[in-house]
Design a protein around this nucleic acid. Structure first.
Lengths: 258, 258
DNA sequence: GCGTCATATTGACGCAGGTCAAGATCGTGG
DNA sequence: CCACGATCTTGACCTGCGTCAATATGACGC
């Protein structure tokens, strides 16, 4: 799929400046003065939306930009030589992908759209030189990378010591929290990923995920129907998730502004 | 053991400038001009060594510095409210710890010495302002953080889809690789962590780790005796590790003929 | 409407690895 | 040199979840 479509011209550059973007309190712009924001805006390219199942980049490709999800969602995954994939993350609007490629200039993962998805492309060399000039940008970039490390640590903890129920409950809580931060309903949302994706991500069998869903459903914790989920009892869900280690740190960024 | 000693004065500041440190091709200094190095040196504080089991910092403490391991080793771990710990990483000389705390200024993990260990303390505010002036420092910091994300992704992959043998084999390979990079023998080394620590880190039971060690031993892959390990057959060990996804990226910095 | 394909649910069964328990071995202090 | 506690090994048993297989429920095209 190397032939680039030439219909791009027909789409007029969708001008959504960072300053106007509803996600600017989550994304890179956080903490930047509005005149600095313009300079960040200037290096960002908005690209045509990706269709479902389309790739943003493939594992092994050269890295030259990170991406911020603007709408839709992505999954990132590694592929073993035996061809099995391992999903390492799902990415919602306002989140960055590609940070793992900075280390050696090559993407270690592939990134694929789970639904129609648009992203902002941020050329890394420009970002790097700009962040030398804008300390608040540098700071926010470091913060976001640090946050990703923290998230991965939580996932590792879940994989290492939680049961199937606990993992799924924690997963749903994580989604719920992230939806709330983005202004969506934390109790009713759609899963853009399949059962298989969830299972893969959580280190479980597809069938186990299905079973746990119906179990949680029967226990009155949530309503699921295919992709749509409604969380009925947050508190009990937290209990199911065992260690709400996800909770503690995520709740406290409500009062954060310096 | 909690009373802080005031005998620090008796130790004369151990002056091991980054320029003289054998680890400077792995650590923060990588890629910096030697005159810039002096400026990094100037903000780093070398502290008295930690004794085995002593903590470098505790989860929940305010974050104000990252640390580079100079000698010895550390483990970092999270504690659930039920009191169980989850080890998230082992840290060898030249590696940084504390990067996960940048995001919200509080340490999400505790860091504890596995043996007598000395570290370089790098005050983060100074590091941040210095890296605005030294782009190569900023670049290396981003690289190291990105690398940590990559490592965590490999660990997640192992936890999500590998068997007990595969996990332990991959763990030993990871140690071996890191020892080689640091100029130690990649085939004979000592495990500074206990079986319980390894098990905890790998999401297994202590007994399973023990059993797998003897199985690998009986299969002629390695010799183990308590803490000392000798890898006898690297290639077969790689095979045992299943997907050498750990391998792929790590092999490329050794000239492997096959 | 109907057929086809992808996705999800549900059941039956087996095994990797967890748990419990008993020794074995090491390290350290007296 | 011995004793005691920490650490490690090994065995016997049990269970959570993976695997296999059948069925159900969409979604989409014709």
């Amino acid at each position: 799929m190397s032939s680039e479509t030439k219909t791009v011209v027909s789409l007029k550059r969708i001008k959504v400046a960072c300053g106007d973007c509803s996600l600017n309190t989550l994304c890179l712009p956080l903490g930047m003065a509005s005149d600095d924001l313009g300079r960040l805006d200037a290096i960002i390219e908005r690209k045509r939306p990706l269709a479902r199942a389309e790739h943003l980049y493939h594992c092994g490709e050269r890295f030259d930009a990170i991406y911020a999800v603007r709408s839709g969602s992505l999954k990132t995954y590694a592929t073993s030589e035996h061809g099995e994939e391992q999903i390492l993350g799902f990415h919602l609007p306002g989140e960055l992908v590609g940070l793992d490629a900075i280390a050696d200039g090559v993407h270690p993962l592939s990134a694929q759209a789970l639904e129609t998805t648009s992203v902002c492309e941020i050329p890394f060399d420009k970002l790097e030189s700009l962040s030398v000039q804008l300390p608040s940008l540098q700071r926010q970039l470091l913060r976001l990378m640090s946050h990703e490390i923290q998230d991965d640590q939580k996932t590792m903890t879940a994989l290492a010591q939680k049961s199937a129920e606990e993992r799924l409950a924690a997963f749903l809580i994580s989604l719920s929290t992230r939806f709330r931060q983005r202004g969506f309903s934390p109790t009713r949302f759609n899963l853009s990923m399949s059962r298989g994706d969830i299972a893969n991500y959580l280190g479980l069998a597809l069938e186990t995920v299905s079973r746990v869903f119906t179990r949680l459903h029967n226990d009155g914790l949530l309503r699921v129907e295919r992709k749509s989920v409604e969380l009925l009892d947050q508190d009990r869900l937290y209990a199911y998730a065992g260690t709400p280690c996800t909770t503690a740190s995520q709740l406290q960024n409500s009062r954060h502004s310096s």
